[in-house]
Write a protein that binds this DNA or RNA. Structure first.
Lengths: 354, 354
DNA sequence: TCTCGCTACGCAAACGTTAGGCTAAACCAC
DNA sequence: GTGGTTTAGCCTAACGTTTGCGTAGCGAGA
């Protein structure tokens, strides 16, 4: 048992000449408790003079609330999740919560879940690592801790906080179409992942509803090498696309590398539009036109929904409605053949050029 | 007070027909307690059948230990800190700890400190955001929670976990010198920061001890724009350098942009070597030769030192001795004039080419 | 004067563990 | 058979809060 140094409630009570319960009431109930203003004042000043801080464990034990949230992310290497975490941490801090963060690499999922949820360390949990087959799905179902699936939805769960992936894909499609491209394709992420699936569907739908052919789609893992190979397949196909939407930053980088190695100039021969904006993309070999998503807001909204559930409100889905932002850089331009239709106006969503 | 659903110690005790304290002893003391193997077995099976998990708050209240560490990082946007956090989280998980993560943006430092330390939520804290004037320095001094300064040292604290920044800078210097450069310079970070200062000193020292002139040094903040301008100043100086060491990834990117805009070819006219490796640097306009640091190990070592302090051992400094790794890419080459000395061998540290 | 109803606080029992001390039985040697 | 030592497990008091309930004291109405 380590050193117990700090001031306790009873110390404040003694110093103020009242019973501990009165101190607790003054400190908790704000001004609803029946206590003389004079007494209240005395307690308050004594508490602050002694620099009293309530012990979180004792309080938590009594109230069954820890003021702590858990958060599971698939990887901190991915700046997308760093940004979501930032938003969540900031919002949690504002609300008086702290966040326990773990990388959910599935070798430790269950162990970490026990430690956080079953041992009562947290009041709620943000799961950003949901994917088909992840054991966390069963764990969530078998418990009654407040929870939220962030970014990656779990269909039917009613606990999803997500962004407008389809909109993002549509904006990408419209950007390419607006530039005059008609031969479009996409490098998609693993379609089993909710986000990847929605981006892919959104892109296809936007292209088709513009009257163009269903764009070719190649599925690839969310990293450079997979997209490099996927891009290779796209470029070898008979109907070589002039505009390609790539579903993730790392993929975009791999795709860019492949285009270069195929001797294609970007954007002169091939337009590339990516997803997941990052400051670094400004400095790529070809600065990447990309869609910037409201990631911080996603994280904050996840926390907000947890707070709602803790307030006793029923869980619900949240769509983060802040519009995805088209950031036009150098990787997109008109297609090589001059096929630009006369009256295809640039769409009217917000666009920022950096 | 929210729902109390889970199995408690007394439930296990009742089911096993023993006193709660016996259950506690069996579960805690492993095999040192005086309890019949038969009884122990019964308790163990009952506990696991009921899926008993001890309540962390109650246990923590009693033992004054939370199995939780706090961690303060300056920014999660910086992948360097993401990587340190990854290492720390992984090691903490292995040791049975969880990590509460916060971005220390100094508007909330004190509030977060109170919440974590003064309210007794954590057993120790990793401070990766130490910088002169940061209020956390006083808070640490005024408390007796176990703590570690990671990455950025606080001189004289005896609680530092840090990497061989000087070595990294020396390796960079030797690489440039080995290529034949004699006109060297560096873009340094804010010299008040421990890491930046050591990198700068290490570079200068290595250059001077190779018999070359003290290299020019320009100080700039750790971001693209500052380095862009710093690089401008370097390039305008009379003795324009042919080899430049840049102290941080973002700075390197800014420096690269500036070189390009000055019409200089990298590496033909100017060699650039950076710090802080990142997968993305492979795909920059000019893939960046850089020094890769053992960031994950740094994070893990910080946790290890916290564990040591908790075991009652006196705090001490740790140098992460894993050698910085030179990753040679395309941004460094021999200087434009053929001045390569005949017998300057490439230094013998580990080098990886990607 | 007696009750009633406030006001302002005290009392004590929790919350779920852990750990020091104790006791009863069993064992051993004499 | 007695006394001393183990062995195996129970009893109880914490850890620092919160909170339902109890109750003095007081003024007011009858």
């Amino acid at each position: 048992m380590s050193a117990r140094n700090s001031i306790r409630l009873v110390d404040v009570a003694r110093a103020a000449g009242v019973h501990p319960s009165t101190v607790s009431r003054v400190l908790r109930d704000s001004d609803r408790a029946a206590v003389r203003p004079e007494t209240r004042e005395r307690i308050l000043t004594v508490a602050s003079e002694l620099r009293y801080r309530p012990n979180a464990l004792a309080r938590g034990l009594k109230t069954a609330a820890t003021a702590t949230f858990g958060m599971l992310v698939p990887s901190l290497r991915n700046p997308v999740y760093s940004e979501i975490v930032r938003g969540a941490v900031a919002d949690a801090t504002r609300r008086g919560y702290v966040i326990v963060l773990t990388e959910d690499d599935s070798t430790v999922t269950e162990q970490v879940w026990d430690r956080l949820v079953e041992e009562g360390r947290i009041d709620g949990i943000v799961v950003a690592s949901a994917a088909p087959g992840n054991p966390v799905l069963e764990l969530v179902a078998g418990s009654r801790v407040p929870y939220v699936f962030a970014n990656r939805r779990v269909p039917g769960s009613g606990h999803n906080v997500y962004m407008r992936e389809e909109d993002a894909a549509r904006i990408a499609a419209e950007h390419l179409i607006g530039l005059g491209h008609t031969a479009l394709a996409q490098v998609a992420g693993p379609l089993g992942l909710d986000t990847a699936g929605r981006r892919a569907a959104g892109f296809s739908e936007a292209v088709v509803s513009a009257g163009l052919q269903l764009p070719a789609l190649v599925e690839a893992p969310f990293e450079e090498r997979g997209a490099y190979e996927a891009m290779g397949r796209l470029l070898q196909s008979r109907a070589r696309p002039t505009g390609v939407y790539v579903s993730n930053l790392n993929q975009a980088i791999g795709a860019l590398a492949r285009a270069r190695r195929s001797g294609l100039r970007v954007p002169e021969d091939l337009s590339l539009i990516g997803y997941d904006d990052d400051p670094l993309t400004d400095f790529l070999e070809v600065p990447l036109t990309a869609i910037r998503m409201p990631l911080g807001e996603l994280g904050a909204t996840a926390i907000e929904e947890l707070a709602r559930q803790i307030d006793g409100e029923p869980a619900r889905d949240h769509e983060v409605t802040t519009a995805p932002l088209l950031v036009v850089r150098a990787s997109t331009a008109a297609p090589p053949e001059e096929l630009i239709p006369a009256t295809t106006p640039e769409p009217s969503y917000a666009a920022q050029v950096t």
